[in-house]
Amino acid sequence: MKIIDAQIHIWGQGKPSGLHRQVPVFTAEEVLAEMDAAGVDAALIHPPASWDPDSNALAIAAAARYPKRFAVMGQFPPERVENRPLIQGWRNQPGMVGLRWPLIAAEQQAWLRDGTLDWLWPEAEREGLPIAMMGGLFLDDFRRIAEAHPGLKLILDHCGLVRTGQDEAAFAQLDTLLALARLPNVAVKATGAPHYSTQGYPYRNLHDGLQRIFDAFGPERFFWGTDITRMPCSYRQCVTFFTEELPWLGGRELEWVMGRGLCQWVGWDYDFG
């Protein structure tokens, strides 16, 4: 079974935000060494532009250098009118399969409502570009966009849960999240899951909530991943948490969750052999 991580970061400068490893540089070669040790075949790079403004170019260079190991969900400042033409032919860049903006800051989330990003959704829909966002921060806006643009594939980052919550608090909006599963153009990246528990591995208090999300979205719209530079456990444990510790996940469905579903959703032409 091929294992493909739905979210990693690499960077060449800046001060990483939040709980990410506080190192000034984290290279493609460093993450490849960790992937190899953990049994991870490939990964989708999300440029952390909030602390490294050159990270998009860095990700493209990594995908060009290691085309069998990396693809990219890239980004650019979407609020700048002069950047709008960049979306045309976006996939022509090495490894590029989509777009991703976390929109964590309140002023960035305001763009969802004040018209700043109204241009983006129809353009991405026309270009066939999936967009990933930290939609758990703005589930109502996320639903509105998904309903208005049914041909636009949207991805909820980090299980779609409450970003700052842990244990039961992380699932405070679970019913609202599960309702989004009725929209066929919405998928969930099951990335960063260990962060949501104050318990140790294998994070048993997350199992039921994750199963409910999986049951709602199904194996083709529920993508395993790590955000490894922010995880409280080893890379290998991030893998085995899903491949060995969830009794409700196995067989063909596990294969879809661990990589095949992600590649189909974003249009990553990965060789599964």
Rank of each mutant, 00 (worst) to 15 (best):
residue 195 H to K: 13
residue 168 E to V: 00
residue 160 G to I: 07
residue 220 E to V: 01
residue 222 F to G: 09
residue 138 F to G: 04
residue 149 H to M: 03
residue 175 D to L: 04
residue 219 P to A: 12
residue 124 A to Y: 07
residue 224 W to Y: 11
residue 124 A to V: 01
residue 141 D to N: 10
residue 209 G to P: 02
residue 155 I to D: 15
residue 131 I to W: 11
residue 160 G to S: 14
residue 187 A to Q: 05
residue 214 F to H: 14
residue 207 H to G: 05
residue 157 D to S: 09
residue 146 A to K: 08
residue 146 A to V: 04
residue 219 P to N: 10
residue 120 L to M: 11
residue 144 R to D: 04
residue 142 F to K: 04
residue 134 M to S: 12
residue 215 D to K: 14
residue 124 A to S: 11
residue 220 E to L: 06
residue 202 P to H: 12
residue 201 Y to L: 06
residue 136 G to A: 09
residue 213 I to D: 09
residue 139 L to Q: 13
residue 185 N to I: 00
residue 203 Y to V: 00
residue 176 T to C: 00
residue 165 G to T: 00
residue 162 V to S: 05
residue 127 E to T: 02
residue 176 T to Q: 14
residue 171 F to H: 08
residue 211 Q to R: 15
residue 125 E to L: 03
residue 211 Q to K: 15
residue 126 R to S: 11
residue 203 Y to L: 01
residue 124 A to M: 14
residue 217 F to R: 13
residue 204 R to M: 00
residue 127 E to D: 11
residue 124 A to P: 05
residue 214 F to Q: 07
residue 179 A to Q: 15
residue 221 R to Q: 10
residue 168 E to Y: 03
residue 218 G to Y: 09
residue 117 L to D: 03
residue 127 E to L: 02
residue 208 D to C: 01
residue 142 F to Y: 14
residue 151 G to E: 15
residue 163 R to D: 02
residue 148 A to F: 03
residue 214 F to A: 11
residue 144 R to C: 00
residue 222 F to P: 14
residue 220 E to T: 13
residue 131 I to D: 07
residue 139 L to A: 14
residue 203 Y to N: 04
residue 130 P to F: 03
residue 205 N to A: 02
residue 119 W to L: 01
residue 210 L to H: 08
residue 186 V to E: 08
residue 127 E to W: 03
residue 182 R to C: 01
residue 193 A to M: 04
residue 225 G to T: 09
residue 216 A to H: 12
residue 182 R to A: 11
residue 117 L to H: 06
residue 151 G to W: 15
residue 141 D to M: 06
residue 216 A to L: 06
residue 132 A to Y: 05
residue 152 L to E: 07
residue 155 I to M: 15
residue 119 W to G: 00
residue 201 Y to D: 10
residue 156 L to K: 14
residue 199 Q to G: 15
residue 167 D to A: 06
residue 139 L to W: 13
residue 139 L to F: 14
residue 154 L to I: 07
residue 213 I to C: 10
residue 209 G to C: 03
residue 194 P to Q: 09
residue 213 I to R: 10
residue 116 T to K: 07
residue 166 Q to C: 00
residue 170 A to E: 04
residue 219 P to K: 09
